[in-house]
Amino acid sequence: MSFLSLDAINKSFAGVPVMRDATLAVREGEFMAVLGPSGCGKSTLLQIAAGLLPPSAGTVRIAGRAITAPPPEAVYVFQQYTRSLLPWRSVRDNVAFATEHRLGKRRARAIAEETLAQVGLSGFGDHFPWQLSGGMQQRVAIARALAAEPAILLLDEPFSAVDALTRLDLHALFLDIWSRRKLTVMLVTHDVEEAIYLADRIALLTYRPSSISEIFEVGLPRPRDPITTRALPQFLELRQTLLQKLLARPDA
């Protein structure tokens, strides 16, 4: 039974269709990656899934319920942490921002300290985001998302704005959190290896007007390891297939 489903989503901007009949079903507890080249409308699809952007046609369902506004079950994590973190708030208060409107400031701060500890940022609560490195700032953003205790996380290339080593580090952290919290994840990315390494299934997004063309089962064993998993023949095979699909675009 799918937990998050996108049903025949259409989207036009100023009359220009950018998405046509995109359909995707994400199962509960599944890690779904949506792979596509830059500019194919991945973020648009994700924002529609998050209820941040209304589709021109089609339905988004979460737990069987059609949604028209950001649902409480899902939290969106932005690509640019510098834009979504609030520079006038301390790290702790940035994380607390996710819940203080529901739980009050004290309770929200306590939760913030807990989630900051889970992402390895204990002791950084009094810092300001701009005093931290890019990787640490993205951890703050992740902690903030976790503080809201969502069932679904919608990730908009959250690992793309940091350097390669930090990215591996964040991957490991994120996989750990995902398995412990039994989250349902929809990740959009243009990075083939990242998609294979993290996901259970990979949906391929075509060019504009974009739609989901194929879905691949990853089938790699878990827990995954940043070095050995990437060396498995299955990994390399899938990587080759996906790269071919991506490069074989008519206009590429």
Binding site: P70, Y76, R83
Partner: peptide, 12 residues
């Protein structure tokens, strides 16, 4: 930042 506003919305 549009992202900051969208962030507010995603947290309800």
């Amino acid at each position: 930042e549009a992202d900051a506003l969208a962030m507010g919305r995603t947290f309800g």
